[in-house]
């Protein structure tokens, strides 16, 4: 799956998440936990971290 498609998938999943869930930890990035909200900021702004985030989420089958 291309990075672009992964981003679209992430945004779709995120949009459908209840508000309480968005504050949950979904990944460890550079040894530190990040939540759905943190991931959203990175992905939505196409940062360098977003590539790693999306890759990991796909590997873990969270996306």
């Amino acid at each position: 799956m291309s990075m672009e498609t992964a981003k679209e998938k992430f945004l779709k999943v995120y949009a459908n998440l209840p508000l309480g869930i968005r504050e949950e930890i979904i990944l460890i990035l550079e040894g530190k936990p990040i939540t759905w909200n943190v991931a959203y900021l990175e992905v939505n702004n196409n940062t360098k971290n977003s590539q790693e985030i999306l890759r990991k989420l796909e590997e873990l089958k969270i996306l």
């Binding site: 930890i25 979904i26 990944l27 460890i28 936990p33 990991k56 590997e59 873990l60």
Partner: peptide, 8 residues
């Protein structure tokens, strides 16, 4: 990675 995530 899964274990680290679950622990967090």
């Amino acid at each position: 990675e899964k274990r680290e995530l679950v622990i967090a």
